[in-house]
């Protein structure tokens, strides 16, 4: 489902809670939202994971640039 050495759920959680340090530690720089398409497909609670990751990336872009 997720081919990288990354925990998709923990990363999404960090993105939802705007936890920048957490996202960096969990490897947000290695992913693009599209990587989460499969996760989004199987998600039982129908969370828009790609959207959450996009928001997280945007937040980092705003804060760090």
């Amino acid at each position: 489902m997720f081919p990288f050495d990354i925990f998709p759920m923990q990363l999404t959680k960090a993105a939802i809670t705007d936890d920048i340090d957490g996202m960096e530690n969990l490897g947000i720089y290695e992913v693009a939202p599209e990587d989460f398409a499969l996760c989004e497909y199987v998600c039982t609670t129908k969370i828009n994971i790609q959207d959450k990751i996009r928001t997280g990336l945007d937040l980092i872009a705003d804060e760090c640039m």
């Binding site: 497909y41 199987v42 998600c43 609670t45 828009n48």
Partner: peptide
């Protein structure tokens, strides 16, 4: 938005 095909499971 995102994937428009979703698994039937919830």
């Amino acid at each position: 938005k995102g994937t428009h095909i979703r698994d039937g499971v919830d």
